[in-house]
Nucleic acid binder design. Structure first.
Length: 243
DNA sequence: AGTCATGTTGACGA
DNA sequence: CTCGTCAACATGAC
């Protein structure tokens, strides 16, 4: 489920309930302040990276699907519902996710320019942030949500393949043109991911993630747990340069 | 059937 | 106190 584009789809699906009053709230989440939002109107649904924001007039519920989270709209399944919102016109169930009430307005919490899926995404700011961490590996920086909110492990691997950069390269050693390429591809591939997920062709289109053979040179793909983030990286040792 | 993974937080120890 | 490490969470796909 949970990379930025999947949240983008979730928000699109929920937009049918924007402006609608929540008739009933249930689920096994514990915060009574969330139950107290019953009978209030959802003003809008937003996302920031992998966060889903359910915005009321004053309060905002944040949902993070983490690794195993899921949701169903107008449908039930045999699993514990963490949070259910029921409207006159339908309902949504969230499972195995993190649910929190934000302590402040989203605008005071989130830097929209860090979200690769957001209209306010700023490539220039991303470049500044990368330059501020010259000693860190690019595989870790791509997963840093303050820099690339919404980018997850799949996007990380696909972006580095497209940019031709080995995941363990230190940001400070990567030429400027390559850094710009990585930033450009992060946004570009996130939207390709979105389209392919909607078409049901996402996995089919992976160039390197979980692949055994390089699409370009036919040599074996290297699989290695990399960086502080200790996530698996897939890369081609011939087509991705180590800086 | 068992293994693994699109993620993050918080506890613990050095 | 800060840093690094790692368990915990909990489910579907192969």
């Amino acid at each position: 489920m949970p990379e930025g584009p999947s949240l983008y789809i979730l928000r699109q699906e929920l937009d049918q309930f924007a402006g609608k009053r929540v008739q009933h709230i249930s689920g096994n989440q514990k915060d009574k302040r969330i139950e107290a939002l019953e009978n209030k109107v959802v003003k809008s649904f937003k996302t920031w990276g992998k966060h889903l924001l359910i915005c009321f007039d004053k309060e905002t519920i944040k949902i993070h699907l983490l690794l195993f989270g899921s949701y169903l709209i107008n449908e039930d399944k045999d699993a514990k519902v963490r949070l259910n919102l029921t409207f006159n016109s339908g309902f949504v169930n969230f499972y195995a996710c993190q649910v929190k009430l934000l302590e402040d307005k989203p605008n005071n919490i989130y830097d929209w320019s860090a979200d690769v899926m957001n209209k306010k995404w700023s490539a220039a700011k991303a470049l500044e942030k990368l330059r501020a961490h010259p000693d860190q590996m690019i595989c870790d920086l791509l997963l840093n949500q303050e820099i690339f909110a919404g980018v997850g492990n799949i996007i990380k691997n696909e972006v580095l393949f497209r940019a031709g950069v080995q995941p363990e390269s230190k940001a400070g050693d990567i030429p400027d043109a390559k850094l710009r390429k990585i930033i450009k591809e992060a946004k570009k591939y996130a939207f390709e991911f979105l389209e392919q997920k909607q078409e049901g062709t996402l996995k089919k289109n992976w160039q390197v993630h979980t692949k055994k053979t390089c699409k370009k040179c036919k040599n074996p793909i290297t699989r290695k747990v990399t960086g502080k983030s200790k996530r698996r990286s897939f890369y081609c040792m011939y087509d991705q340069e180590l800086f």
